[in-house]
């Protein structure tokens, strides 16, 4: 890990300060009672987050255990609430409406389909974006004319509102639009089952790849040139330099970037909601979990709350797997970067 720590010569005042007082830990108390004051500084933020984000989420979990008002399918009586136990959850997971399984075409029958769709989008977009972004970053890491301007212009797709991105690609993918014209095809991009999925993946890759590339580029720029020089002297070719030097050194930052990107992709809403109207294909080819929740809100709050809780659990599970098994150590990576051991 500590490839660069040995070559630090301390060319900033900050580093000289640290060198002269290595025994003093960052954040050693300047005054008495500072820990308490620290809490006062953090408290407003925590209170606001607890009230505006924490409370609604807890409320959603409570709601998910209550019955939606409506006709009880078992007894045929009208119920206006009451304890539902886990029935809202079993409704989604087992796709059961009352005692029978949900008929095709209802929202209840779409849970596992939309789980599949969401994960498919996540896998496809993240893999393409990271590979393409990595390549773009390596290319942009070289010195050439107008690099600053190029970096600014590739950020444009990321910066414009997703609503506009979606509409822009909606026109490009229209039946008589540019995409069909250029490709000499007659594809129903926003209607066909796989065509609409491809359309969303293409639009998302267009929007996010430059952003990923810039994140990786920032990671590449802290790799010292002499590391490459040493590898070159040892006779490594450019592919070996990439796999043996660049990749291992970028890996911690890359893993965190991928984790954040995956968490965002799993929550995707705007693009499919606008580009294909949430449906696409047979009506739910591009229905992601977030879209299903919004659709369900009209059909019953408490059931929607159960669905959003399930979505949260799925995303949490993915994040947990990332941190536990794939080594995306978010906090540690940051700490180590600050201590200068990466």
């Amino acid at each position: 890990m500590s490839v660069t720590s040995g070559v630090s010569t301390g060319d900033t005042a900050e580093q000289q300060t640290q060198a002269s007082a290595p025994e003093r830990k960052r954040g050693a108390s300047l005054h008495r009672g500072e820990g308490r004051r620290g809490i006062y500084l953090v408290a407003p933020t925590i209170i606001l987050l607890a009230a505006v984000i924490g409370y609604p989420v807890v409320k959603a979990i409570v709601m998910s255990f209550q019955k939606d008002p409506g006709l009880d399918k078992a007894t045929g009586m009208f119920v206006s609430g009451g304890n539902a136990g886990f029935s809202n959850y079993t409704h989604w997971i087992l796709q059961r409406c009352g005692t029978a399984s949900c008929p095709p075409g209802t929202l209840g029958a779409e849970f596992w389909d939309s789980v599949g769709t969401t994960f498919m989008f996540t896998l496809a977009t993240v893999v393409i974006e990271v590979l393409l972004g990595m390549w773009m970053a390596v290319v942009m890491n070289r010195a050439f004319r107008g690099r600053g301007l190029l970096r600014a212009s590739v950020l444009v797709p990321w910066a414009i509102p997703t609503a506009i991105t979606a509409k822009l690609w909606y026109f490009i993918f229209a039946y008589d639009g540019i995409a069909n014209r250029v490709l000499h095809t007659h594809i129903l991009w926003t209607g066909g089952e796989w065509a609409s999925r491809f359309a969303i993946i293409i639009a998302d890759v267009w929007k996010t790849t430059p952003f990923i590339a810039l994140l990786i580029l920032a990671g590449l720029q802290v790799i010292p040139a002499e590391t490459y020089e040493a590898a070159r002297v040892d006779g490594a070719n450019s592919w070996q330099r990439f796999t043996k030097v660049t990749l291992p050194l970028v890996r911690p930052a890359l893993m965190v970037a991928i984790l954040f990107r995956v968490l965002d992709a799993l929550r995707i809403y705007d693009l499919p909601a606008i580009l294909t109207g949430g449906g696409g294909g047979t009506g739910h080819a591009t229905t992601t979990l977030s879209i299903l929740v919004v659709d369900q809100i009209r059909g019953g709050f408490n059931s929607a709350a159960a669905l959003s809780t399930l979505t949260f659990l799925l995303i949490f599970l993915v994040a947990f797997i990332f941190v536990k098994f794939l080594g995306a150590h978010v906090v540690q990576t940051q700490q180590r970067q600050q201590k200068g051991t990466i």
Binding site: V3, T4, S5, V7, S8, T9, G10, D11, T12, E14, Q15, N141, R142, A143, R147, G148, A218, L220, Q221, V222, I223, P224, A225, E226, Y228, E229, R232, R241, Q337, Q338, G340, I342
Partner: peptide
């Protein structure tokens, strides 16, 4: 190389201009 090494040690210091050429072809 030395400034790069130092910069690497301190991760991404905001004091450094980002336009620095970190190409491997120095």
């Amino acid at each position: 190389a030395s400034s790069l090494g130092a910069a690497g040690g301190r991760a991404k210091s905001w004091k450094r201009p980002l336009d620095r050429d970190a190409s491997s072809l120095g």
